[in-house]
Protein backbone atom coordinates (compact mmCIF):
# COMPACT_ATOMS: atom_id res chain seq x y z
CA UNK A 1 0.00 0.00 0.00
CA UNK A 2 1.75 3.12 -1.11
CA UNK A 3 -0.15 6.37 -1.19
CA UNK A 4 1.21 9.31 -3.11
CA UNK A 5 0.07 12.90 -2.69
CA UNK A 6 0.42 15.32 -5.60
CA UNK A 7 -0.12 19.06 -5.15
CA UNK A 8 -1.62 20.97 -8.07
CA UNK A 9 -1.96 24.73 -8.47
CA UNK A 10 -4.23 26.72 -10.73
CA UNK A 11 -2.13 29.37 -12.44
CA UNK A 12 -2.31 31.72 -15.41
CA UNK A 13 -1.73 29.65 -18.54
CA UNK A 14 1.86 29.71 -19.77
CA UNK A 15 0.80 31.05 -23.17
CA UNK A 16 -0.83 34.16 -21.74
CA UNK A 17 0.95 37.47 -22.24
CA UNK A 18 1.15 38.93 -18.74
CA UNK A 19 -0.31 42.42 -18.27
CA UNK A 20 0.51 44.48 -15.21
CA UNK A 21 -2.42 46.52 -13.84
CA UNK A 22 -1.84 50.26 -14.39
CA UNK A 23 -2.35 51.01 -10.68
CA UNK A 24 0.50 48.66 -9.73
CA UNK A 25 -1.76 46.44 -7.64
CA UNK A 26 -0.86 43.21 -9.42
CA UNK A 27 -1.15 41.46 -12.77
CA UNK A 28 -4.41 41.03 -14.67
CA UNK A 29 -5.84 37.60 -13.85
CA UNK A 30 -9.55 38.28 -14.48
CA UNK A 31 -10.82 36.94 -17.79
CA UNK A 32 -7.46 35.31 -18.47
CA UNK A 33 -7.03 31.63 -19.30
CA UNK A 34 -5.85 29.53 -16.36
CA UNK A 35 -4.62 25.97 -16.31
CA UNK A 36 -2.73 23.55 -14.11
CA UNK A 37 0.81 24.75 -13.38
CA UNK A 38 2.91 22.86 -16.00
CA UNK A 39 5.35 21.50 -13.39
CA UNK A 40 2.38 20.09 -11.45
CA UNK A 41 1.25 18.29 -14.62
CA UNK A 42 4.69 16.66 -14.70
CA UNK A 43 4.30 15.71 -11.02
CA UNK A 44 0.85 14.19 -11.76
CA UNK A 45 2.20 12.29 -14.76
CA UNK A 46 5.02 10.84 -12.65
CA UNK A 47 2.57 9.64 -10.00
CA UNK A 48 0.45 7.97 -12.67
CA UNK A 49 3.51 6.27 -14.17
CA UNK A 50 4.58 5.01 -10.73
CA UNK A 51 1.09 3.58 -10.29
CA UNK A 52 1.23 1.95 -13.73
CA UNK A 53 4.58 0.38 -12.72
CA UNK A 54 2.99 -0.97 -9.55
CA UNK A 55 5.00 1.21 -7.14
CA UNK A 56 1.97 3.19 -6.05
CA UNK A 57 -1.51 2.03 -5.10
CA UNK A 58 -3.37 5.30 -4.64
CA UNK A 59 -2.93 8.85 -5.97
CA UNK A 60 -4.46 11.76 -4.10
CA UNK A 61 -4.41 15.18 -5.74
CA UNK A 62 -4.51 18.17 -3.43
CA UNK A 63 -4.82 21.90 -3.96
CA UNK A 64 -4.90 24.95 -1.70
CA UNK A 65 -6.97 27.82 -3.03
CA UNK A 66 -10.37 29.28 -3.85
CA UNK A 67 -13.47 27.69 -5.35
CA UNK A 68 -12.15 28.02 -8.92
CA UNK A 69 -9.35 25.59 -8.11
CA UNK A 70 -11.81 22.72 -8.33
CA UNK A 71 -11.36 22.72 -12.12
CA UNK A 72 -7.63 22.07 -11.57
CA UNK A 73 -8.45 19.19 -9.25
CA UNK A 74 -10.80 17.77 -11.92
CA UNK A 75 -7.89 17.87 -14.41
CA UNK A 76 -5.74 16.02 -11.89
CA UNK A 77 -8.49 13.43 -11.49
CA UNK A 78 -8.67 13.08 -15.28
CA UNK A 79 -4.91 12.53 -15.32
CA UNK A 80 -5.41 9.55 -13.04
CA UNK A 81 -5.70 10.70 -9.43
CA UNK A 82 -8.07 8.41 -7.53
CA UNK A 83 -9.47 11.16 -5.36
CA UNK A 84 -8.78 14.75 -4.39
CA UNK A 85 -8.53 17.05 -1.39
CA UNK A 86 -9.44 20.72 -1.76
CA UNK A 87 -8.15 23.01 0.98
CA UNK A 88 -10.59 25.80 0.19
CA UNK A 89 -9.18 29.22 1.03
CA UNK A 90 -9.81 32.37 -0.99
CA UNK A 91 -7.25 35.09 -1.58
CA UNK A 92 -3.49 35.06 -2.04
CA UNK A 93 -1.79 32.10 -0.36
CA UNK A 94 1.93 32.39 0.35
CA UNK A 95 4.15 29.31 0.00
CA UNK A 96 4.70 28.65 3.72
CA UNK A 97 0.95 28.69 4.42
CA UNK A 98 0.29 26.37 1.47
CA UNK A 99 3.09 24.09 2.69
CA UNK A 100 1.60 23.94 6.19
CA UNK A 101 -1.78 22.86 4.80
CA UNK A 102 -0.22 20.35 2.38
CA UNK A 103 1.94 18.88 5.16
CA UNK A 104 -1.18 18.53 7.31
CA UNK A 105 -3.00 16.65 4.52
CA UNK A 106 0.05 14.40 4.02
CA UNK A 107 0.11 13.56 7.73
CA UNK A 108 -3.65 12.97 7.83
CA UNK A 109 -3.53 10.65 4.82
CA UNK A 110 -0.48 8.75 6.04
CA UNK A 111 1.04 8.95 2.54
CA UNK A 112 4.57 7.72 1.71
CA UNK A 113 5.44 10.04 -1.14
CA UNK A 114 4.73 13.69 -1.95
CA UNK A 115 5.34 14.84 -5.51
CA UNK A 116 5.10 18.56 -6.26
CA UNK A 117 6.11 20.72 -9.22
CA UNK A 118 9.48 22.40 -8.69
CA UNK A 119 7.91 25.84 -8.99
CA UNK A 120 4.67 27.50 -10.02
CA UNK A 121 4.94 29.68 -13.10
CA UNK A 122 2.99 32.53 -11.49
CA UNK A 123 4.96 33.50 -8.39
CA UNK A 124 8.08 31.52 -9.44
CA UNK A 125 8.89 31.04 -5.74
CA UNK A 126 10.13 27.41 -5.88
CA UNK A 127 9.62 26.91 -2.15
CA UNK A 128 6.59 24.78 -1.35
CA UNK A 129 8.02 21.27 -1.82
CA UNK A 130 11.12 22.00 0.26
CA UNK A 131 8.96 23.59 2.96
CA UNK A 132 6.67 20.55 3.15
CA UNK A 133 9.73 18.31 3.58
CA UNK A 134 11.09 20.63 6.26
CA UNK A 135 7.82 20.82 8.20
CA UNK A 136 7.54 17.02 8.16
CA UNK A 137 11.28 16.41 8.73
CA UNK A 138 11.34 14.25 5.61
CA UNK A 139 14.01 13.80 2.94
CA UNK A 140 13.69 16.01 -0.13
CA UNK A 141 14.86 15.51 -3.69
CA UNK A 142 14.18 18.69 -5.64
CA UNK A 143 14.40 19.33 -9.40
CA UNK A 144 14.02 15.63 -10.20
CA UNK A 145 14.63 14.36 -13.73
CA UNK A 146 14.40 10.63 -12.87
CA UNK A 147 12.67 8.75 -10.06
CA UNK A 148 12.98 5.08 -9.20
CA UNK A 149 11.24 3.48 -6.24
CA UNK A 150 13.18 0.63 -4.66
CA UNK A 151 11.31 -0.80 -1.67
CA UNK A 152 11.43 1.77 1.11
CA UNK A 153 13.83 4.00 -0.78
CA UNK A 154 13.75 6.24 -3.82
CA UNK A 155 16.69 6.84 -6.13
CA UNK A 156 16.30 10.31 -7.60
CA UNK A 157 18.38 12.09 -10.23
CA UNK A 158 18.34 15.87 -9.83
CA UNK A 159 19.09 18.63 -12.33
CA UNK A 160 21.53 20.90 -10.53
CA UNK A 161 23.80 23.67 -11.80
CA UNK A 162 26.84 21.37 -11.83
CA UNK A 163 25.15 18.56 -13.78
CA UNK A 164 23.07 15.57 -12.73
CA UNK A 165 23.17 14.55 -9.08
CA UNK A 166 21.77 11.26 -7.83
CA UNK A 167 20.46 10.90 -4.28
CA UNK A 168 19.12 7.95 -2.35
CA UNK A 169 16.33 8.92 0.04
CA UNK A 170 14.31 6.93 2.54
CA UNK A 171 10.52 6.97 2.20
CA UNK A 172 8.38 8.77 3.14
CA UNK A 173 9.86 11.66 1.19
CA UNK A 174 9.12 14.74 -0.91
CA UNK A 175 10.15 15.00 -4.58
CA UNK A 176 9.79 18.07 -6.80
CA UNK A 177 9.47 17.60 -10.55
CA UNK A 178 11.69 19.32 -13.09
CA UNK A 179 10.97 19.73 -16.81
CA UNK A 180 12.60 16.60 -18.10
CA UNK A 181 11.12 14.13 -15.61
CA UNK A 182 8.51 13.12 -18.19
CA UNK A 183 6.15 14.44 -20.83
CA UNK A 184 2.60 14.67 -19.50
CA UNK A 185 -0.07 12.83 -21.47
CA UNK A 186 -2.98 14.52 -23.18
CA UNK A 187 -6.23 14.14 -21.31
CA UNK A 188 -8.83 11.99 -23.06
CA UNK A 189 -12.51 12.81 -23.06
CA UNK A 190 -13.64 9.57 -21.31
CA UNK A 191 -11.15 10.29 -18.50
CA UNK A 192 -12.40 13.87 -18.21
CA UNK A 193 -15.97 12.52 -17.93
CA UNK A 194 -14.97 9.92 -15.35
CA UNK A 195 -13.13 12.58 -13.33
CA UNK A 196 -16.42 14.40 -12.73
CA UNK A 197 -17.64 11.53 -10.57
CA UNK A 198 -14.51 11.09 -8.47
CA UNK A 199 -14.70 12.28 -4.84
CA UNK A 200 -13.30 15.63 -3.66
CA UNK A 201 -12.87 16.08 0.09
CA UNK A 202 -13.16 19.73 1.09
CA UNK A 203 -10.96 20.95 3.93
CA UNK A 204 -9.82 24.35 5.21
CA UNK A 205 -6.94 25.80 7.21
CA UNK A 206 -9.20 25.58 10.27
CA UNK A 207 -10.18 21.95 9.72
CA UNK A 208 -6.51 21.05 9.28
CA UNK A 209 -5.49 23.04 12.34
CA UNK A 210 -3.26 25.32 10.29
CA UNK A 211 -2.69 28.88 11.48
CA UNK A 212 -1.52 30.93 8.51
CA UNK A 213 1.28 33.39 9.29
CA UNK A 214 1.17 37.02 8.16
CA UNK A 215 4.24 36.87 5.96
CA UNK A 216 5.24 39.21 3.19
CA UNK A 217 3.30 42.17 1.87
CA UNK A 218 3.42 42.94 -1.84
CA UNK A 219 3.48 46.71 -1.97
CA UNK A 220 3.77 47.23 -5.72
CA UNK A 221 3.78 45.29 -8.99
CA UNK A 222 5.38 46.87 -12.03
CA UNK A 223 6.18 45.93 -15.61
CA UNK A 224 9.87 45.19 -16.19
CA UNK A 225 11.96 47.78 -18.04
CA UNK A 226 11.53 47.22 -21.77
CA UNK A 227 14.51 46.40 -23.97
CA UNK A 228 14.38 48.55 -27.03
CA UNK A 229 14.43 46.87 -30.38
CA UNK A 230 17.84 47.14 -32.01
CA UNK A 231 18.95 47.13 -35.60
CA UNK A 232 19.11 44.40 -38.21
CA UNK A 233 22.37 44.33 -40.15
CA UNK A 234 22.84 42.83 -43.58
CA UNK A 235 26.29 41.28 -43.38
CA UNK A 236 28.65 39.66 -40.91
CA UNK A 237 31.15 42.47 -41.58
CA UNK A 238 28.61 45.05 -40.42
CA UNK A 239 27.92 42.98 -37.30
CA UNK A 240 31.61 42.63 -36.46
CA UNK A 241 32.10 46.39 -36.99
CA UNK A 242 29.17 47.18 -34.68
CA UNK A 243 30.47 44.84 -31.95
CA UNK A 244 33.98 46.24 -32.29
CA UNK A 245 32.62 49.79 -31.97
CA UNK A 246 31.10 48.79 -28.62
CA UNK A 247 34.31 47.08 -27.52
CA UNK A 248 32.57 43.71 -27.29
CA UNK A 249 34.92 41.70 -29.52
Amino acid sequence: MMKVLVSVKRSVDYNVRIQVKPDGSGVVTEGVKHSMNPFDEIAMEEAVRLKEKGNVTEIIAVTVGGAKNEETLRSALAFGADRAVHVKEEGEIQPLNAAKALAAVFRKEGAQLFIAGKQAIDDDASQTGQMIASLLDLPQATFASKVEIDGNKAIVTREIDAGLETLEIDLPAVITADLRLNEPRYLKLPDIMKAKKKPVDVQSFASLDVTPGAGLKITKTAAPPKRSKGIVVKTVDELVAALKAKGLV
Binding site: V12, I18, V20, I121, D122, D123, D124, L216, T221, P224
Partner: peptide
Protein backbone atom coordinates in the same frame (compact mmCIF):
# COMPACT_ATOMS: atom_id res chain seq x y z
CA UNK B 1 7.26 36.96 -10.98
CA UNK B 2 5.70 35.41 -14.11
CA UNK B 3 9.10 34.64 -15.64
CA UNK B 4 10.22 38.23 -15.13
CA UNK B 5 7.21 39.67 -16.94
CA UNK B 6 6.32 41.55 -13.76
CA UNK B 7 8.42 42.81 -10.89
CA UNK B 8 6.94 43.04 -7.43
CA UNK B 9 8.15 44.91 -4.39
CA UNK B 10 7.76 42.92 -1.19
CA UNK B 11 7.89 44.17 2.36
Amino acid sequence: IYAGNAICTVE
